[in-house]
């Protein structure tokens, strides 16, 4: 019961943050709305029993990555955006498109309820540190290491590009 209520609350906060991200004019307000989205996603992970994933979500996404976003916006001192009136085609196609997409997803979810299976929002040991470590460093060791090397190459590429400019 408590889990359901908390899920609905944080789900609503998450969606509200996402909408606010689009509506706000100032880039810093948009970036901060994204932080709210990340943080409430972390709380939803926590409700699913994935405590380690939740903590990492807060540290990496809400903490490190979004701080860099805010940092860059502060450095560039970007002002408020000018709001254009928006094209009419976007309005004519966009609103019905969103409605159709929403109906489609809802229809698929309801009709294929059995195949999709349910999700229980209660404590499990799935997201604790030990099971995740076992998955990453034993079952999926090779893909994990290859991803690490890929990221390392990307970092080195960024450093090389940055040095050439200076």
């Amino acid at each position: 019961m408590v889990h359901q209520v908390l899920f609905i609350v944080f789900g609503l906060i998450c969606v509200a943050g996402a909408v606010n991200l689009l509506v706000q004019r100032h880039p810093i307000n948009s970036a901060l709305s994204l932080v709210v989205v990340m943080a409430s996603l972390a709380l939803i992970y926590l409700l699913l029993g994935a405590e380690f994933v939740a903590a990492i979500q807060v540290i990496v996404y809400a903490g490190a990555i979004m701080v860099l976003f805010v940092f860059v916006i502060m450095l560039l001192n970007a002002g408020s955006e000018e709001r254009s009136s928006g094209s009419r085609i976007a309005l004519l196609l966009g609103v019905p498109g969103v409605l159709v997409l929403g109906c489609l997803i809802g229809w698929i979810m309801i009709n294929n309820n059995k195949q999709l299976g349910g999700v229980s929002i209660a404590a499990t040991d799935f997201g604790e540190t030990h099971p995740i470590a076992r998955l990453l460093f034993r079952d999926f060791l090779l893909p994990f290491e290859i991803t690490s090397i890929l990221i390392l190459i990307a970092i080195m590429g960024a450093v090389v590009l940055g040095k050439r400019e200076g």
């Binding site: 901060l32 932080v35 380690f52 540290i59 809400a62 805010v70 502060m74």
Partner: peptide, 23 residues
Amino acid sequence: NIGLLIILGATSIGVYGIALAGW
């Protein structure tokens, strides 16, 4: 079981307080 990570997370969110204060 993630006590240490929560403290690290709180400090990393705390950076916003200082960054936004200045801006």
